[in-house]
């Protein structure tokens, strides 16, 4: 925690100590650590002078904030209108089946976090999914299988555990 503590203070000092920088700090902390723990949120509150209740209210209002650690790989499925029309929901169902978790959840072994996102504006290549920040165009169930295989050994383990080898 000490090493982390140093880093947190560096992040905290990026912005003036004013309430209006609450969202900036939540974003930067999440970028660094993948999620916002209750301890870091308290530190942000001390810095910005925002009551913890309000910070928590903000962190739960916006969809992009995570209050729990996320998995090693993050899979996001776009559900914009174009993706919806071109089979996005099918991809979601398929992923739910393969990973054994629902959108927004992380697999119990902490390998995968899977979520849906609002339109990414990449409608020409719908349906699109994003794996660890990389866009994958024109997704189909077949391609998904391949993509998942390229994520490596990790995935097969998950699949075996869940009985979907």
């Amino acid at each position: 925690m000490n090493i982390e503590g140093v880093k947190i203070s560096e992040i905290l000092e990026r912005y003036p100590a004013k309430p209006e920088y609450l969202i900036f700090l939540l974003q930067d902390i999440q970028k660094q650590y993948g999620f916002i723990s209750s301890e870091t949120m308290e530190q942000i509150c001390d810095r910005t002078g925002v009551p913890l209740t309000q910070a928590y209210s903000v962190a739960t209002f916006y969809q992009s904030f995570r209050l729990e650690p996320k998995g090693e790989h993050e899979i996001k499925v776009c559900l914009g209108t174009a993706c919806h029309l071109k089979g996005g929901p099918r991809i979601v169902n398929e992923l739910e089946r393969r990973l054994g978790v629902k959108a927004g959840e992380t697999t119990s072994d902490m390998k995968f976090t899977f979520d849906t996102v609002n339109c990414l504006g990449a409608c020409a290549i719908a349906p699109v999914i994003v794996i660890d920040e990389e866009y994958h165009p024109n997704m189909t169930a077949q391609k998904l299988e391949k993509q998942i295989k390229t994520l490596g050994q990790d995935m097969t383990e998950v699949s075996e555990v869940l009985g979907h080898a």
């Binding site: 209006e20 969202i23 903000v58 916006y62």
Partner: peptide, 21 residues
């Protein structure tokens, strides 16, 4: 930070002010 409603003007302002939109 991921809230469609922040495209609405008053929600956008509250969000810039650092609050829930």
């Amino acid at each position: 930070a991921g809230a469609f409603v922040c495209g609405e003007s008053t929600a956008l302002f509250t969000s810039i002010e650092g609050k829930a939109g």
